[in-house]
Amino acid sequence: MEDTELHTISFTLNGVTQRLRVAARRSLTDVLGQECGMKSAHMGCGQGDCGSCTVSVDGVPIRGCLLFAVQADGADIRTAEALANPDSLAAIRNAFKKHRAIQCGYCTPGFMVLADYILRNELSLDQAIQTLSANLCRCTGYSPIVSAVADLLAARAERGSGP
């Protein structure tokens, strides 16, 4: 069956309203990458297993490969290009860089989205590790990713308790 039926949708992508016409079967990851030019939209498995496609939808991390773009109509979407808080985005980037949490970079946007969620929700390190365990990385051995997020949490705690 051909996609004769296109749906007009709009959502906020990294703070900017987008209006699109999409076929119902296109995943959010597909549309973000192919229609909206988001280079961080990485399809890794299409099964929700690997998390390379993780994006923030209405403030929570979601598998972009398992959400039809048409379902995101009206949603507030954030990708690794522009996470909610610019300071926090810069801090996440620096921590990932400093701790060698990036090798090939394919899983990185998904992990950044999880890190952003962890920081916004002030999770404990244990909770953070459980949360990060949602996504797969095949290069780094994960330990640098954990160090980066632990560092971010420690910096946050220090700021929180400081004068």
């Binding site: 280079k39 990932f96 860089k97 990185t108």
Partner: peptide
């Protein structure tokens, strides 16, 4: 890293 972190680099899929 800067390139990869700012997602300014394209993998072949995009």
């Amino acid at each position: 890293d800067d390139d990869l972190l700012q997602a300014s680099t394209r993998f072949v899929g995009s």
